[in-house]
Simulated scan of single mutants.
Amino acid sequence: MVLEHALLPVRPGQEAAFEAALAEALPLIAAATGNRSVTVSRGVESPSTYLLLVEWDSVADHEEGFRGSAAYERWRALLHPFYDPFPVVEHFTPVARSGSAP
């Protein structure tokens, strides 16, 4: 399992429109091959910043599979106009988890 992490800096004042677009975009990534889950959270201290966490079977499922798909083109059209600056996306693998081994 690989965890994709991105802080999404949304232009101030565009949060409601971003969340509306996100509601349309989430099913696109949720249906992608290798997607296990997707969560988006809004910052408490920084309400224009959102945290995207996506669990993938592999980095390739994200980088080659989803990003190479028509669904990603729609995702990009829906969400990318809201970002300033563009988010940095990184991938992580588990090393520890409360109550269980990695």
Results as ranks from 00 to 15, higher is better:
Thr93Leu: 13
Gly99Asn: 08
Pro12Gln: 04
Leu26His: 07
Thr49Gly: 03
Glu45Gln: 14
Ala101Pro: 00
Arg36Ile: 07
Ala17Lys: 07
Ala60Met: 09
Arg42Phe: 00
Leu7Ser: 12
Ala30Asp: 14
Phe18Tyr: 15
Pro9Gln: 06
Glu15Asp: 06
Ala21Trp: 07
Val59Ser: 10
Leu22Thr: 07
Val2Gln: 15
Arg97Met: 10
Ala31Gly: 02
Glu15Leu: 02
Glu73Leu: 12
Val44Met: 13
Trp75Arg: 04
His5Arg: 14
Glu55Phe: 08
Ile29Asn: 02
Pro27Phe: 07
Ala17Leu: 08
Ser48Thr: 08
Val88Ile: 12
Glu64Lys: 13
Tyr72Ala: 01
Leu78Thr: 02
Trp75Gln: 00
Glu55Arg: 15
Glu15Phe: 04
Glu90Phe: 09
Ala101Leu: 12
Gln14Phe: 11
Leu3Val: 12
Leu3Cys: 11
Ala17Met: 05
Phe18Leu: 03
Ile29Leu: 06
His91Val: 02
Ala77Pro: 02
Leu79Arg: 03
Ser98Tyr: 15
Ser48Glu: 07
Thr33Lys: 15
Ser41Arg: 15
Arg11Cys: 01
Ser48Leu: 00
Ala23His: 09
Glu64Asn: 11
Gly34His: 07
Ala71Asp: 10
Ile29Gly: 00
Phe66Ser: 00
Glu24Gln: 15
Leu53Pro: 05
Gly34Arg: 06
Phe86Met: 12
Ala101Trp: 14
Pro27Lys: 09
Ala25Tyr: 01
Trp75Gly: 01
Glu55His: 14
Glu64Gly: 00
Val44Cys: 10
Tyr83His: 08
Leu3Ile: 12
Glu64Asp: 14
Ser46Ile: 09
Gly65Met: 09
Val10Trp: 01
Gly99Met: 05
Ser69Lys: 05
Val59Leu: 12
Val40Phe: 09
His80Trp: 15
Thr33Asn: 13
Leu7Thr: 14
Phe92Ala: 10
Leu8Pro: 02
Phe92Arg: 13
Ala96Thr: 09
Gly65Asn: 08
Gln14Gly: 00
His5Lys: 12
Gly68Ser: 04
Ser98Asn: 11
Asn35Lys: 07
Val10Gly: 00
Leu51Gln: 11
Pro102Gln: 11
Ser98Arg: 15
Val89Trp: 08
Ala71Cys: 06
Leu26Ser: 05
Thr49Ala: 09
Ile29Pro: 03
Glu73Pro: 03
Gly68Trp: 03
Pro94Ser: 14
Ala17Glu: 13
Ala71Tyr: 04
Ala60Pro: 07
Asp84Gln: 15
Glu15Cys: 04
Leu26Pro: 01
Ser69Trp: 05
Thr33Pro: 11
Glu55Val: 10
Gly34Trp: 10
Glu73Asn: 09
Arg67Gly: 03
Pro85Leu: 09
His62Cys: 00
Gly68Ile: 04
Asp84Leu: 10
Val2His: 14
Ser37Phe: 15
Arg36Glu: 10
Pro12Asn: 05
Leu8Trp: 11
Ser46Lys: 15
Leu26Ala: 05
Leu26Asp: 07
Ala21Val: 02
Phe82Cys: 00
Asn35Trp: 06
Leu22Met: 11
Gly65Thr: 06
Arg11Thr: 09
Ala31Glu: 08
His62Trp: 03
Arg67Pro: 00
Phe92Pro: 06
